[in-house]
C-alpha cells in the first residue's frame, strides 16, 4: 500500500487543534499527546457546540494543552489553573470548563486550590496527567514520584511516599473520581465525556509516561511503561479510593471510583444570592 502521498481526508481531530502549532513540543513517546487526543475525542463525542467549552491549563509540559486546542482557552500561571477555571465557571456557569494540566501543577504547586475547588464541588472537569515527575524542568522529584524511584533530585531513590490522588480528591469533596492510563484511551475518553456531561467537581487522573525525564532515570522506555499499564493494572469500578495507592508490583487499580450527585458551588451560590436569576432559569428550562 502506498503511504507516501498525503491522505485526501484530514485527521478527524484537526478541527479541534491549532494545526499551525503542530508539531507540538511533547517528546517522542510522551503520553501527553495521547491524553490530549482522548480529551478532544470526548469533547467531540458530547456533540456540544465547541463555543460552549473552555480549556484551562497551568504550567508544565501538559500545560501546553490549552495552547494547542482550537477553542477558547487559557494558559495560566503555575498551579493556578483551577482558580482561573473557577472564576470562569462562576462568571459564566453555562460554559463547560475543562482543566487540562499535570500532577505537579495541579496537586503540588496548586494543591491548595485543588482541595478547595473539590470541597466546594466547583463544576469543573479536571484531567490530571500524572507522569510522576516535573518533566519540563528536568525531572525533579514530585509529590507523585513513587517511593524509591530515581529523579534528578533523588539520585539514590525517592525517600518520600507519594500522594494517592484519587483518595486526596475524594477526601477533599470531589463528586466524581476516576483513574485511567493513556493506554486506556477509550475508557479515558468515555470518562472525560461523562464528566463534561455531569455536574460537579470531576477528577480524572491519567497515568502517562515521561520517557525523557522520568523513564530514562528509572530504566523504563515509553513502551515499557505502556506494558506496565496493560499488565500491572486492575480495572475495579467502585473501588475504595483508599486502595488506589500506586504500586505496580501489587497492581494499580483503575476505574471510576466515585460518582455522587450534589449541588455545585455555582448552583448553590446563585440560589442563595441571585434567587431571581434561578427562578427565571427554572421557568425557561421548565
Amino acid at each position: 500500500m502506498k503511504n507516501k502521498s498525503k491522505p485526501d481526508v484530514p485527521h478527524p481531530l484537526e478541527d479541534l487543534v491549532r494545526m499551525d502549532r503542530i508539531p507540538h513540543i511533547w517528546c517522542s513517546g510522551c503520553g501527553t499527546g495521547s491524553v490530549f487526543a482522548s480529551c478532544l475525542t470526548a469533547i467531540k463525542q458530547t456533540g456540544i457546540d465547541y463555543r460552549r467549552f473552555t480549556m484551562v491549563s497551568g504550567i508544565g509540559c501538559s500545560g501546553r494543552g490549552a495552547g494547542y486546542i482550537n477553542i477558547d482557552s487559557f494558559h495560566t500561571t503555575h498551579g493556578r489553573a483551577i482558580p482561573f477555571a473557577s472564576g470562569i465557571k462562576m462568571a459564566n456557569p453555562d460554559l463547560n470548563v475543562i482543566v487540562f494540566s499535570g500532577d505537579g501543577d495541579l496537586c503540588a504547586i496548586g494543591g491548595n486550590h485543588f482541595i478547595h475547588a473539590a470541597r466546594r464541588n466547583m463544576d469543573l472537569t479536571v484531567v490530571c496527567i500524572n507522569n510522576f515527575t516535573y518533566g519540563m524542568t528536568g525531572g525533579q522529584v514530585a509529590a507523585t514520584t513513587p517511593f524509591g524511584a530515581k529523579s534528578a533530585t533523588t539520585s539514590a531513590g525517592n525517600p518520600e511516599s507519594p500522594f494517592n490522588l484519587p483518595l486526596l480528591a475524594y477526601a477533599a469533596g470531589a463528586t466524581y473520581v476516576a483513574r485511567w492510563t493513556m493506554l486506556h484511551s477509550r475508557d479515558l475518553a468515555d470518562a472525560i465525556k461523562e464528566s463534561i456531561l455531569r455536574k460537579g467537581f470531576s477528577f480524572i487522573e491519567v497515568l502517562s509516561p515521561c520517557p525523557i525525564n522520568y523513564g530514562r532515570r528509572n530504566k523504563e522506555k515509553a513502551l515499557d511503561a505502556l506494558r506496565k499499564y496493560q499488565k500491572n493494572t486492575i480495572v475495579k469500578n467502585g473501588a475504595n479510593p483508599a486502595e488506589a495507592d500506586i504500586d505496580f508490583d501489587k497492581g494499580v487499580i483503575l476505574g471510576k471510583f466515585i460518582d455522587i450527585d450534589k449541588a455545585t458551588c455555582d448552583e448553590s451560590y446563585r440560589k442563595m444570592y441571585r434567587p431571581q436569576e434561578t427562578a427565571d432559569k427554572q421557568l425557561k428550562t421548565g
Binding site: 500500500m1 481526508v9 478527524p12 503520553g31 495521547s34 487526543a37 484511551s185 477509550r186
Partner: peptide, 25 residues
C-alpha cells in the same frame, strides 16, 4: 507503514497516537 490489509477500522491507533499522525476510515 502498512504491512497487511487486515485493518478493522477500530480507530485505536488514531486515539493512541500522540501526534495526530495516523487515522482510519
Amino acid at each position: 507503514v502498512v504491512r497487511s490489509e487486515d485493518c478493522l477500522n477500530c480507530h485505536y491507533c488514531e486515539l493512541l497516537c500522540p501526534e495526530f499522525a495516523i487515522f482510519s476510515v
